[in-house]
Design a protein around this nucleic acid. Structure first.
Length: 129
DNA sequence: ATCAGGGCTGGCC
DNA sequence: TGGCCAGCCCTGA
C-alpha cells in the first residue's frame, strides 16, 4: 500500500527543531505519489498518519525550499477541489503538464482536470443532513 | 459548474 | 496563550 504506520513509530522525543516525525511522514507520503498523478493536502495528511492535518501539510510544503536535501514532487499536491495554491500555481501547472496532467486556467485560477471516473476521494467529508 | 463567505481543525512558532 | 497558514467543508447565489 501506501499507508505507513511506520510514521507513527517514528515519533520520539521531538525536542529540537524541524525534521519532526510529522515532516518525515509528510515527505514520505508525497514521495509516494506516482508520476502523472495528484493527491490533495488532506490525502497526504491521511497517508502521513495525521488525518485532518491538511493545513499542516501545506505548511510543510511551504517550507520545502529550506530543505534542499529532501527533494519532493510537491507539485503533485493540490487542494481537494483541484485548484492550485496561487503562489506556486504557474510553476506547478508547468510541472504537472510536463507529466501529462491536464491543467486548465481561468483567470488566476489553475486547476487539474478531475476525472469523473476516478474522483479524488474526499477525506473527512461530512454527511449532508 | 463556479464563486464567495463563514466556521472549524491541525501543527507550529 | 495568541496567531499564522500552499486547507476543508458547507451553504447560498
Amino acid at each position: 500500500m501506501f499507508l505507513e504506520s511506520g510514521a507513527v513509530a517514528l515519533r520520539a522525543k521531538t525536542k529540537t527543531t524541524t525534521p519532526l516525525p510529522f515532516s518525515k511522514a509528510v515527505w514520505q507520503a508525497v514521495r509516494a505519489i506516482p508520476r502523472g498523478q495528484v493527491r490533495s493536502y488532506a490525502q497526504v495528511a491521511l497517508y502521513a498518519g495525521r488525518p485532518g492535518a491538511a493545513r499542516g501539510v501545506g505548511r510543510e510544503m511551504a517550507a520545502l525550499p529550506h530543505q534542499p536535501d529532501v527533494p519532493l514532487p510537491w507539485w503533485r499536491v493540490t487542494r481537494s477541489d483541484g485548484t492550485l495554491a496561487s503562489q506556486v500555481a504557474q510553476e506547478q501547472a508547468r510541472r504537472l503538464r510536463a507529466e501529462g496532467v491536464e491543467v486548465t486556467q481561468r483567470g488566476d485560477t489553475f486547476r487539474v482536470k478531475v476525472s469523473r471516473e476516478a474522483p479524488a476521494p474526499r477525506v473527512g467529508a461530512k454527511r449532508k443532513r
